[in-house]
């Protein structure tokens, strides 16, 4: 799920950036530092949308660097265990398939794919029902439930399932 939240960060600024453009420099450095990062607690920082306030700077002894506490609003993407979301399949193999929902990767193991879907190898590996009516291959859109998350220093990785009611391939023509 995407959230709009307020975060705080202490920014260190080199004295050469002081002057009329101090604030702009601070903001552009913040964007460069923060956008695209990921933490286990807040998820992926997608975009900074505004600056709430810039606190009083504190001069560091000995270096001349100044630390500013900056409060900023941003859009983050944070997956949760138990959350249901839609994703695009990126890779299919006999172990299961990988899907992407925005910045996050989700793996669905073949144990968590309905039993009536069989793996078919070939040019385009896929999972297909015995009657051929439903097929999961690269670029298929699926609705899945996240059942586990693993948090790395710089990435969040999810395990999902499509073995439940109302999950699986999205074939709702009205949604296109």
């Amino acid at each position: 799920m995407f959230f709009h939240i307020v975060l705080e960060r202490n920014m260190q600024l080199h004295p050469r950036h002081f002057g009329r453009n101090l604030r702009e420099n601070l903001v552009s450095k913040l964007m460069k530092d923060v956008e695209g990062t990921c933490s286990g607690r807040h998820g992926f920082v997608v975009a900074i949308t505004g600056i709430e306030n810039v606190g009083k700077g504190l001069i560091r002894d000995g270096t001349g660097f100044v630390t500013f506490p900056v409060k900023y609003q941003c859009v983050v993407f944070r997956p949760f265990k138990g959350e249901i979301l839609e994703a695009v399949v990126t890779m299919v193999n006999k172990m299961g398939f990988f899907a992407e929902a925005g910045p996050v990767q989700i793996f669905v193991s073949n144990h968590l794919i309905p039993d009536d879907m069989e793996f078919q190898s070939g040019d385009i590996p896929n999972y297909t029902t015995s009657d051929g009516s439903v097929k999961i291959q690269k670029d298929t859109e699926v609705r899945l439930k996240i059942i586990g998350t693993r948090v790395d220093a710089t990435e969040i990785f999810c395990i999902g399932t499509i073995k439940d009611d109302f999950l699986g391939v999205i074939n709702d023509p009205a949604a296109v």
């Binding site: 995407f2 695209g36 975009a47 910045p103």
Partner: peptide, 16 residues
Amino acid sequence: QVSQVFEKSLQYVKRF
């Protein structure tokens, strides 16, 4: 200019 996270998120939300 934009991060990979931004690019992927934009593609994702446009699609869904």
